[in-house]
Every structure is written in C-alpha cells, then in structure tokens.
Design a protein around this nucleic acid. Structure first.
Lengths: 344, 344
DNA sequence: CTGTTAGCGCTTTCAC
DNA sequence: GTGAAAGCGCTAACAG
C-alpha cells in the first residue's frame, strides 16, 4: 500500500469538511460549482486518488473479478484473458487471475482465495479434472455472480460463453470428407468436459450426415492432466492407428495441445502429412503456418469469448437486482485450411 | 464483494468481544488455550475468512502486486507470468496483471491504475516504446517498491531480473560459426531496450572473437510496435538480404516474434532453410519442433525469471526497512539445436 | 450549499 | 485472560 493524499488532507488544506470534499469529488449536485472546482483542482494537482480498500470496505464491493483458468501458458487461454482484460479495464474492474493446473483441488483453493479476497464475481473455465462443483454452486447461491467461459458445464446454472464446438468439429470433419477422406480418426481428451463431448458429437454427426459409419475403434481419448502423460498417450494412439488393418487416412484432433503434439509426433514417427494421414485440429496458434506441413485448424474466437464472458459477469454484478435470464452463447469457430488436409 | 462471517458474528455467537476473537484468530499469546480453540473451531465451521479490504485498510497494505507486461498473448510472457504467479501465491499475494500493448501512454495508465488501486509493489517489463520513466521513478522514490524483469533498463535503480541476453546471442552466433556459417545477418528490433542492445553486442562479440568482420549492412532493425508493421519490415529485410551481392548464409533473430515470422516468411519466399540460409533465434515456443524445418532456438528461463523477480519484489515489500542492495540477476539461456542451423 | 456523524471489518493500544 | 475504544479512508444519512 502506497501513501496517497486522503480526503482529510484536502479538507484540511482547503478548510472544508471531509464530506464536502467527498461529495465534490463525486460530483454531487449539492456542492457549489466554485467549491467543486477548487477541490477538483487541488485533487488533480496533488494526485489524489481514492483508496480502493476504504471505498471497497465501505461499499461492500471491490471492483475486482476473479478469473480461474487451467493455465496461463496456453495460447487460447492467453487470448481469452486478453479479451477479459479488455472488457474489465473498460469498466474499471481489476482482474485477479488464478491457475488450477487442471487440478480440482487447486481449483478449489483458487476459488476460496478469490472469495476470501472479496472479489465481486468469478469467471471460470473449470479444470478438466473437476467433477464436483458443489462449492462453487454454494458460493453462487450465497450471492456471488459466476460466469462460465470456454469450458461449459451443465451442473451450474448461469451465463455461459464458449465456442460452438459442435459446429467446429462438424465443419472440420466435413472438410476432411469433402477432401476425399473416409476413414477419419478422432483424438480427444478423456474428460467429461462439455467441450470434449460436443466436439465428439460434431464429428459423429458429420460422419452420419455423409453416411459414413462411426467406427468406435477410431476414437481415442487421451489423459489430459499432464503434458508427459498426454504425449505418451498420443504416441501410443498414433502407433495403434497406423498399425490397424483398416487404418485411418485422416485425423481430427480436439484440442490445441493434441493438435500440435500430434503433428510433431507424426513427423517424428516418419509419416507424411497429408499423404500418409491428413490432419486438422482445434488450435488458435498463429504458428500453424510455420508447421511442417502447415496445419489446417479450427479457430476459436478466443478474444471475443473472454470479452463477452466478462461483460456478462459485470452485468450480473452491477444489476443483480433485475431479473436477468441466464443464457448460453456459443460463438462461431472457423476453419483455416492449410496443407495438412489437402485434397486426397 | 461477497458476504462472509465477520468477527462480530463470531463474537456475538460465542459471547465474547470482537477483540478477543481477533486475537484468538491471530494466535495471540494473551488468549487462553480453551477460548482460542473454541474460536478457531467456530471460525472453521462457519468458513470465516478475514475481509481483505478491512485488513488492508487497517494495515495500510493490500497484499497485492501489480504486473505490467507488453501483452498477455505471448509465449515468453505467459511463462514469466506463470513463474510470477507461483512465487506470489506461495506467499499469498494476489497479482493484478496489466497490458501496455507496447504503448508508453497505456503503460503509464496501467501504472497509475495500479498505484491508485493500492498495490504493495510493481513488477514491470517496460513497453518497447517507453523512453520516459520519470513517473515510475517518482512513484519509486515516494516509497513504492518496483522490480524490473525481462526487459531491463538503466534509468531505474532497483532489482532487475532477466536473461543473459549477451551470452545467449553470443552462443547462438558462435553456434552458427561453428557450423560453418560466415556471413551472419542479425535481425533485431528498433527499440532502445537493453534486451536489444545486449543481443546485438553478443552477436558482435562472437563475430570479433572469431575474427569475422562485423558488416553493418547485415544488421536490420525492425519496427516492433505492431504486428503488421513488423511483418512488412521483416519481409523487406529478408528480400534485401537475399538480393545482396555478398548475401548472408545465416540469420540470427533477436526475438520470439521475429524468429517465428522470419521462418514463415523465408518459407513463403521460397528459400530453403538451412540450405539457402540458416536460422537460429530467440524464442521459447515448444512448437519449434513442429516447424518446417524445426527451428534452432535460444531458450530463456522465463518461468524462473518471473519467479525470481516476484521473490525479489516481495522481499523488498516485506523488509523495506533493512538495507538491501539492489542487484541485477541475469539467468542463463541455453541453445536448442534443431534442423534450421544444420552444419553447412 | 456545507458540516457532523456513524459505520464498513479489522487491529491494536490500554484498561480491567 | 478479556474487553472497550479508537481509527484506517471513505460514503451517506441527517442537520443546519
């Protein structure tokens, strides 16, 4: 805490009362124009800025928002945080960012810390490990606004903002089919996240819409809790695919991590993309162009998701009294076709 | 702000005074063991957690730290933030992250906001545009602890934590020389950042240590303020290089953005790496393996830089009274050799 | 139009 | 060992 000029200092200097100063600075109608100007001038000259703590204590709010994500070190998340940051600073809220590292326990600790820290609301993209949301729900029921973004779950009833994962997956699969691929494998996570099932469902729907039978053996779910495990799982899955009798000619990957690692692994294992197997996957990295080969991707409007989610949370915080129906917004994804999914 | 149990609630429930509760919870020696236990039990059972505002107001500190970076959407920065987050949560500080987007004006606004918000200290990696640090210095002089990380500048006297950019650049250049390259170009930013000059100096020193004359025409400085400008500048620089009579056979790139974009551009322009021109550059992206070709990199200990910087700031905040000499710590980088700088 | 006062939740003397 | 009271900086009744 740094020392600043206080209302009292100004009052003393100007020979006025503290409340007059307070009102003047808050542009109250009950203060004369000349007094107001005098106060404002002095305040400006002496770099007065209200003490956030005192104000927060008094008003019972902190103008801060807690954000819980799995990790900071992640392209898509960083872009979403960027959007959240934009929306919140526009409305002069501070954000306090916490990482769950995909651990339910750590996520719970983050939420407790944020709650104890007196945040006005929480924006959360749950850890993939989390099954039990009772704590968050109890906080919400006790009046804390909560908005879900990116990873949406059914257990909590509130505003939710994410990508249209079903459509994104559908489009990606359809794109592969249109390019002549028929045996399309799907690599996903082993989580119960909505985001995972939606992408799986989009994939299945695209297959059935094109009368391609869904082959369960072409779906592999990888352990997502830790980078090393994921990598091992992915390598195993790829070897399995490529050793099949009726092996896939294309792979649709469901997440950022899976997409990029998959490309690296296929290269490492000596397979030519897209000749041996085509590849398209969810990922927002701008580096897809630099890959060998350049990677076709499903791109999410990450910045917009963060921004909209933050807007919704703030609206919840600021007019909690009004009846506001909760809604789920799914922003459209779009496909960026590059070399990895060339026509067969 | 969410409603929690307060000291008063506990006092009322237990028929004790507020101050007794406060002391019991703070494990004061002047409270009897049985009373203490009774209070602690009640507090735990009712999920008591002290109000951060009130505590902060009373104690004159907020247990929060402001962090100013150029952008959230940046690999190296994200890793540094990860380290900062680790260090600060370990010591139960909250971090408030702000983005300057490389603009001096916006950076100033961030700092003002943080200061007004009552942060206990500021961690900053200055915008590349910033020349005038007088505001930050004045805050520091008025008692606000400030620690610089990543981008270090001479104007401010405080703890500084960054990578050993001179050594990293030296090593990269030497690696190219050892692999048979003699005409090594250097692409850097047009900023006055220490980080830029150190990397340039490391490059020059490696050349001179191997009796290779420094050719100024092989150094190009690109505008870093905006992604589009940078890309245009880079493309122009590459075309210029490749049209030279005595054209470079290798390029050493100074930043994350430059390295990856350069690789994309060289591919786009149809040059074979490393056959036509070799490439090595600073960048922390894990995706360097996936590139075409895989990119040799100079890797910074980003997580550690963030962590150490945060530790130093906290130590400054907590024992500001003691005489603590300011120091500059440069953590070692290391080179990851991949295909883009193969032996000539 | 301006001032007085109480109180947000907490810590911290100082009495008892 | 426990309690009463003041005060951190601010806002908002309520008086004048």
């Amino acid at each position: 805490m740094n020392k600043t000029v206080t209302l009292r200092d100004i009052a003393k200097a100007l020979n006025l009362s503290i409340s007059t100063i307070s009102k003047a600075l808050n542009d109250s109608h009950e203060i004369g124009i000349d007094t107001k100007n005098k106060v404002l001038d002095y305040a400006k000259a002496h770099h007065y800025s209200p003490n956030r703590m005192a104000k927060g204590l008094k008003e019972g709010k902190s103008r801060s928002i807690g954000v819980v994500v799995c990790s900071l070190d992640n392209n898509v998340i960083a872009q979403m945080l960027d959007g959240i940051h934009k929306a919140t600073t526009d409305k002069s809220y501070q954000i306090i960012i916490m990482q769950s590292k995909e651990s339910q326990k750590q996520e719970q600790a983050c939420i407790e810390l944020l709650y104890a820290g007196g945040v006005d609301g929480i924006l959360i993209s749950p850890a993939c490990e989390t099954i039990d949301f009772s704590y968050l729900i109890s906080l919400q029921e006790s009046g804390l606004p909560v908005v879900l973004f990116d990873r949406l779950i059914d257990q909590i009833n509130t505003h939710k903002v994410g990508a249209n994962n079903f459509k994104g997956a559908y489009d990606a699969t359809q794109h592969l089919i249109a390019n002549g691929y028929q045996n399309i494998a799907h690599l996903n996570t082993n989580t119960i996240l909505n985001i995972a099932t939606e992408r799986l469902n989009g994939y299945k729907k695209a297959l059935s819409d094109h009368s391609i039978p869904y082959r369960p053996e072409l779906l592999r779910s990888c352990d997502y809790t830790d980078a090393n495990t994921l990598n091992a799982d992915l390598e195993e899955a790829l070897k399995y695919y490529m050793s099949m009798d009726n092996k896939p000619d294309a792979i649709f990957t469901a997440t950022d991590q899976i997409s990029t690692r998959c490309l690296v692994l296929l290269n490492k294992l000596g397979y030519k993309i897209p000749h041996d197997v085509a590849l398209i996957g969810f990922t927002n990295t701008e580096l897809a162009d630099a890959f060998s080969p350049s990677l076709s991707t499903v791109h999410q409007p990450a910045f917009e998701i963060g921004q909209l989610a933050a807007d919704k949370l703030i609206s919840l915080i600021e007019k909690k009294n009004l009846y506001e129906a909760y809604e789920t917004v799914l922003l459209p994804t779009h496909i960026l076709v590059r070399a990895s999914s060339q026509i067969k």
